[in-house]
Design a protein around this nucleic acid. Structure first.
Length: 739
DNA sequence: TTAGGGTTAG
């Protein structure tokens, strides 16, 4: 028996809703009056007062009255599971209704599995049998925790209890099977329901939408219509969501008219679903019109609108929406951060994150941290990344697979492979994304064999690789010259792993072959492709032609690439470099003229370095930095010192696009990575590692200079270029000059 | 006598 004490003599609540001009006189009337008060309770305090009075007057001994009180304690908006349990313990011999109510309360609580324990107590301790009310709650709990085996067991029990055909039980099972990813079982249950109701259809439609088959959801909706089942507002939410996922504006608009013509009851959720459909389908005008007419808006409304602008990369409008929100929440902030981060604007994402940190009463969640870590990875903001890592530990934020993968990715891309491995090693569970992130990290640092080991360990751990895993593995092979391994794995992708190679995988293999000098083999591989080669396939071949100075093949690859992407500046620059390397200066100038006439610009080289949490960017020949004078002063000193150690500038690296007044050597010295390294030398002390991130591939001269600086100045330098990492130490680079 | 299943943003 729980310990429940009546704290004070009951005084009927003074709350105005409780005043009753006609005081009840008889016992029956008093009971009825008390029961009506239960229904009108506004908070737990009032309920407890009624409880006390019921105990005092003996009304609590009446089973019906006690269970009414209990149901409110367990399920009302102000419910308290703790208190409800105490009330439950006071009820002698609870009946099915009371047990079911307790099961229901637990099933929708924070720990749904506890409802199963209550169910087991009910079966073992009471004379009550589970009925058509019991199973939907239990099955809901199984759905909440996505436990297929539990769902299946409950399904079996329901059948044995002769309630398997009940439409409520069947509908819960459909929902549960979808949640557990067992679409076949969900469909089987659906077909066995003899008298399907609208919820049966809704469960199927919603299930298909949520499990990535919006087309099937729409098919089902059409079938539902043909069977003349009247759609509800929940049906329409599902159907609109399917349209949004399919980006089918035309059908989406028809659905909106359907809702109006068929008198489907509108509510806020449905209006939000319409708004979402318009924004996802790219019709911001429709969205704005609807948004302006909505009298009631919640945070979903605001965030959907914000996201709509973000999709169109209208960040100013998105920002306005955030500013206008009456109560900004973390989801809205996350929407803006991830919009920037996913559209290649990581610096902007970080600025928003810093602003968010200044807000009071808004707690960062996993999504905030994952998006921000990804932005850190892009710009190489290692210090902020570390801060987020310690924030996660300090605030006990539950690390899920997304967070773990994001941390591994951040540490790897910021050049701290040791820390990336540490994160990987300390987690107990790893899914395919975690493994792939680690393989990707090893790949970009040139640890090809370690990456392959990881790939095999992953399979020993019974984790199935996906397309991303293979991309990362091939990338690792490419940077380490592991041609045979890459070819062998590629040939098994479909047969052994069931993954159909995509364009990016073909591009990887061309890269593997090409880098290692097997140019003819790479061409034959392209010719045998079952899908048309994409720009990235030709780009990989072109890159290899540059390394191995194969002019004829380069011209062919570039022509094919430019047929697909006429405005690919990288291709123009690569070809120009190859011409220059072969001394074909006429061709260089023709290409340069072509670029000028067509307004095509070479992406300027840009290198960044993080000092005390601030990212400093340097463009080629940059004078914008406040300490530019000192940087150039340091650069001169460095070059003199290196020359006296025997360094000679690699003029062959000055390949193209030099303005006439510049000398070749000056041009080399203006490279952004040299400026960033020099800034690192003057802003930090040994033995701090100098970490630089460059947007393009590092040039040969800068590579030699970095090696020499690491020796002459005894500083470790880590440079991330567009393709991989270079660790310079004692005059050597981790890439073994193979990049 | 009581009640239940399906709903939108990241």
């Amino acid at each position: 028996m729980a310990n429940f004490s009546i704290a004070q003599p009951l005084s009927l609540p003074r709350h105005p809703t409780f005043s009753n001009p006609n005081q009840p006189t008889t016992n029956n009337e008093r009971s009825r009056h008390t029961l009506s008060l239960i229904d009108r309770c506004a908070d737990l305090r009032q309920l407890k007062q009624i409880h006390a009075q019921m105990v005092r007057t003996g009304l609590f001994n009446d089973h019906y009255s006690a269970s009414k009180l209990f149901a409110i304690a367990a399920l009302s908006p102000f419910a308290s599971l703790d208190y409800a349990c105490k009330v439950f313990d006071q009820i002698p011999q609870p009946n099915s209704f009371t047990w079911n109510t307790l099961i229901r309360a637990y099933a929708s609580g924070p720990d749904p599995l506890r409802s199963i324990c209550v169910f087991l107590d009910m079966v073992s301790e009471s004379q009550c049998y589970p009925n058509t009310y019991t199973f939907p709650f239990l099955i809901k709990a199984a759905a909440e925790v996505s436990s297929l085996s539990l769902g299946q067991s409950l399904h079996g029990m329901a059948v044995k209890s002769s309630v398997g055909c009940d439409v409520f039980v069947a509908n819960s099972l459909i929902h549960c099977y979808f949640s557990c990813g067992d679409l076949d079982s969900a469909c089987k249950v659906f077909t066995t329901i003899q008298e399907k109701d609208v919820v049966s259809w809704n469960s199927m439609i919603t299930g298909f939408v949520q499990k990535g088959s919006p087309d099937k959801a729409l098919e089902l909706f059409k079938k539902m219509e043909s069977e003349e089942v009247k759609a509800s507002h929940v049906t329409m939410v599902g159907v609109l969501s399917a349209c949004a996922k399919l980006r089918n504006l035309e059908f989406g608009r028809q659905v909106c008219s359907y809702i109006e013509e068929n008198g489907v009851k509108m509510n806020l959720t449905l209006a939000n679903a319409m708004l979402d459909m318009y924004t996802k389908c790219g019709s911001i005008e429709d969205a704005k019109r609807l948004f302006d007419t909505m009298e009631v808006k919640d945070n979903v409304t605001w965030t959907t609108m914000l996201d709509g602008f973000a999709i169109l990369e209208d960040y100013e409008a998105a920002r306005d929406v955030l500013n206008s929100m009456p109560k900004k929440d973390i989801v809205a902030w996350n929407a803006l951060i991830s919009a920037y981060e996913q559209n290649g604007k990581p610096n902007e994402a970080l600025l928003v994150f810093h602003e968010l940190q200044l807000q009071k009463n808004i707690k960062l969640n996993q999504i905030t941290l994952v998006s921000t870590l990804s932005a850190c990875a892009q710009v190489g903001a290692l210090e902020l990344g570390r801060w987020i890592h310690s924030y996660i530990k300090k605030h006990g934020i539950r690390s899920n697979f997304y967070v773990t993968s994001a941390l591994i990715h951040m540490y790897s891309k910021c050049g701290d492979l040791v820390k990336a491995r540490e994160v990987f090693n300390t987690v107990e569970k790893r899914d395919v994304f975690v493994w792939s992130a680690m393989i990707g990290g090893l790949a970009m640092h040139g640890c090809g064999n370690d990456a392959l080991d990881m790939f095999y360990k992953m399979q020993e751990a019974n984790v199935k690789p996906n397309g991303v895993t293979f991309t990362n593995v091939f990338c690792a092979c490419s940077h380490s010259g592991l041609v045979d391994e890459a070819e062998s794995l590629f040939s098994k992708m479909e047969s052994n792993y069931g993954i159909v190679p995509e364009d990016k995988h073909y591009a990887c293999i061309v890269d593997v072959l090409g880098r290692s000098g097997y140019l003819e083999k790479a061409v034959k591989f392209i010719e045998a492709m079952p899908i048309p080669p994409s720009a990235s396939v030709w780009g990989a071949l072109l890159g290899a032609c540059k390394i191995h100075a194969n002019l004829n093949l380069a011209e062919m690859a570039c022509t094919r690439l430019l047929e697909l992407e006429p405005r690919n500046d990288g291709a123009h620059v690569l070809l120009s470099n190859i011409y220059a390397k072969s001394g074909k200066w006429e061709s260089v100038s023709e290409l340069r003229k072509h670029m000028r006439v067509t307004g095509l610009k070479k992406e300027p080289g840009c290198s960044s370095i993080e000092i005390n949490g601030t990212i400093h960017e340097f463009l080629s020949g940059d004078n914008e930095h406040p300490m530019a004078d000192k940087v150039y002063g340091k650069l001169n000193e460095v070059m003199e010192r290196l020359k006296s150690s025997g360094y000679e500038p690699e003029m062959s690296q000055v390949l193209q696009l030099i303005d006439e007044e510049e000398t070749k050597e000056q041009s080399l010295n203006l490279h952004s990575e040299k400026l960033a390294i020099c800034y690192g030398l003057i802003s930090t002390e040994a033995p701090k590692v100098i970490r630089v991130i460059k947007n393009l591939r590092v040039c040969g001269d800068c590579h030699s200079v970095a090696k020499l600086i690491s020796q002459v100045y005894d500083r470790e330098i880590i440079v991330r270029d567009r393709y991989r990492f270079h660790h310079f130490r004692n005059g050597q680079c981790s890439c073994n000059d193979f990049w």
